[in-house]
């Protein structure tokens, strides 16, 4: 029985991962297809990458999206970390359930609703829509994701180190930067990366809240896809996938090394 079960487990995991990865692998392979038809293989070629480099509109959109993602992810990380600390450390306060509701609701709220409501806000306070309104919108959405990620780390956090620092006369502000922040840093970094990719990815909210001159990459891709599939989209997708994969793998290796070093230090401390 044992053996049969593990055969079942291996198969289901293998099939599951095949399902998750096959479309992405196919997409990447066909970005090197010489043929204009996405489905007919016409030999290996990098012509779509060359064409991409000459597509100024696409490059502009990519540049706007990158700046937007960097800025909104950074703002979201600061706000989200503050929110997480508030949720975990401040116990009960007036409006706490409202606060946690406002953290969790955006995680599942359909994008069309969030986008529409933010647009109406920007219209009613009459500010010019464009780069900054999308930045504010993305910050609002992604700070909630950061808050949840950082919060899960803070919950298991050992507070005795902080208390020791405070007892030894370290001011709370300094304690935060010297003790707390380094310890929750992996979660903060993960939160930033999540916010960054969510912003890079968002089509719906950006479409609602943007204005003239601020077409993001997903908006550009979306409008091209509506006219039909072009291998150029495969090329830009491949570039994006590569960047994200490298980022995620590097971050996880970095975290793993930190963890190994920490365990080593702990062992040394125990022996000493």
């Amino acid at each position: 029985m044992r053996k049969g079960q593990s055969w079942f487990n291996t198969t289901s995991v293998a099939l599951g991962f095949a399902f998750l990865y096959a479309p992405i692998v196919i997409l990447v392979i066909y970005s090197f297809n010489d043929s204009k038809l996405v489905t007919v293989w016409g030999g290996f070629s990098t012509r779509w990458y060359v064409e991409l480099l000459n597509d100024q509109a696409m490059l502009d959109a990519a540049w706007i999206t990158l700046r937007l993602a960097l800025l909104s992810a950074t703002m979201a990380t600061i706000l989200g970390t503050l929110a997480a600390i508030t949720m975990v450390r401040f116990g009960r306060f007036l409006g706490r359930s409202l606060f946690s509701g406002m953290i969790y609701a955006p995680l599942v709220m359909p994008d069309v609703i969030t986008g529409l409501s933010l647009l109406l806000l920007f219209v009613s306070i009459d500010i010019d829509r464009g780069f900054w309104t999308v930045t504010l919108a993305h910050t609002t959405l992604t700070m909630c994701f950061v808050a949840v990620v950082v919060q899960s780390r803070l919950v298991v956090f050992d507070r005795s180190l902080e208390e020791a620092a405070l007892d030894l006369g370290c001011p709370p502000f300094k304690t935060f930067f010297v003790i707390t922040l380094p310890l929750i840093l992996p979660a903060v970094v993960a939160g930033w990366m999540l916010a960054f990719t969510l912003s890079l990815d968002d089509l719906v909210i950006a479409s609602f809240t943007t204005g003239p001159g601020a077409t993001t990459l997903p908006m550009k891709i979306f409008s091209q896809v509506k006219f039909g599939v072009t291998p150029e989209i495969n090329a830009i997708s491949t570039i994006l996938i590569t960047i994200v994969a490298i980022g995620v793998i590097a971050a996880s290796l970095f975290n793993k090394r930190r963890e190994v070093e920490r365990q080593k230090a702990e062992r040394l401390a125990m022996q000493g």
Binding site: F17, L20, Y21, P23, I24, I26, L27, Y30, V38, T39, M193, L194, T197, L200, D201, L203, P218, I221, F222, V225, V229, I233, N234, S237, L240, I241, V244, A245, G247, V248, S252
Partner: peptide
């Protein structure tokens, strides 16, 4: 990590990938 990795890559791109497969 392998489950999370495709989740990090763009939602729009992953949906787009299916157009070429299902057409």
């Amino acid at each position: 990590m392998m489950v999370i990795l495709p989740f990090w890559t763009s939602f729009l791109i992953r949906v787009y990938a299916w157009i070429g497969i299902l057409g």
